[in-house]
């Protein structure tokens, strides 16, 4: 299986081309959020390095969120259009799972974090079992205080990962004490090769209908839904 993996969920952009589980080329740029101009040239460079044409690809795997709304849309749109136009397979993987997969050789619960502002985070819980990364706490948008309270109740070792972790490290230590540990800064970066591995056997997504996992309705919709019945207003989009 010749596979392309794309993660543009946050500041870091990571792209990999893989032959099954073998990484042929990978690029990770953790500088500025300029995914829209950098992604396509990076894909071209990596395919050239692998001496593949776009048409040689069998599957494209995207990190579908949560993350920066604009960021996840870029990977999802690129993945959808590539899969659709080349007639190849598409798989969507949680952007939090990609972060968790960067922390290997542990039996602890791995908790990937992304800052969602105002003391909120996108977070989930993952655990390696027989070489497979399993979700043990569903990806959610929640207050960091709530996440830490839930983790404390588990009374199990927890490894936090993700580039935003240092912002919450003090709170994690305060609440969880010796239960908490932290992935090193390099392992905390999303790596597309990890995404590729997760996506190799992931269920297929439909290129026509795939949408990002925002895990959060927009503020405008939240306010509107507070006073309106959703079902009476659909469809929201119509072909005219």
């Amino acid at each position: 299986m010749q596979l392309l993996a794309l993660d543009t969920s946050n500041q870091a952009m990571s792209v990999a081309v893989m032959q099954d589980t073998t990484v042929i080329a990978e690029t990770t740029i953790n500088h500025r959020k300029t995914h829209s101009d950098l992604l396509m040239p990076t894909i071209q460079q990596l395919l050239a390095a692998a001496e593949w044409q776009a048409a040689d690809l069998d599957r494209v795997v995207v990190a579908a969120g949560p993350g920066s709304y604009t960021g996840i849309r870029i990977a999802v749109t690129t993945g959808k259009m590539l899969a659709y136009t080349l007639g190849i397979e598409l798989a969507a993987v949680s952007s939090l799972a990609v972060l968790a997969a960067g922390v290997t050789h542990t039996h602890a619960i791995i908790v990937p974090l992304m800052d969602a502002r105002r003391q909120n985070v996108f977070a989930g819980g993952y655990q390696w079992r027989d070489g497979e990364l399993l979700p043990v706490i569903a990806d959610r948008h929640l207050a960091v205080s709530q996440l830490l309270a839930e983790l404390a109740l588990l009374q199990q070792p927890v490894v936090f990962t993700g580039v935003d972790t240092p912002k919450f490290a003090a709170a994690c230590r305060l609440q969880l004490g010796g239960q908490a540990s932290f992935a090193d800064p390099v392992s905390s970066l999303p790596r597309a090769a990890r995404l590729g591995l997760l996506g190799l056997h992931a269920p297929l997504a439909d290129a026509m209908t795939l949408t990002p996992q925002y895990l959060r309705v927009t503020e405008a919709e939240r306010q509107w839904l507070a006073t309106h019945d959703d079902t009476e207003h659909e469809p929201y989009v119509e072909k005219v």
């Binding site: 209908t209 989009v237 072909k239």
Partner: peptide, 16 residues
Amino acid sequence: EVASRHHVEQITECTD
């Protein structure tokens, strides 16, 4: 933000 979300929903089907 709502507009962007609809675009990503629609783009592939509209192309097809």
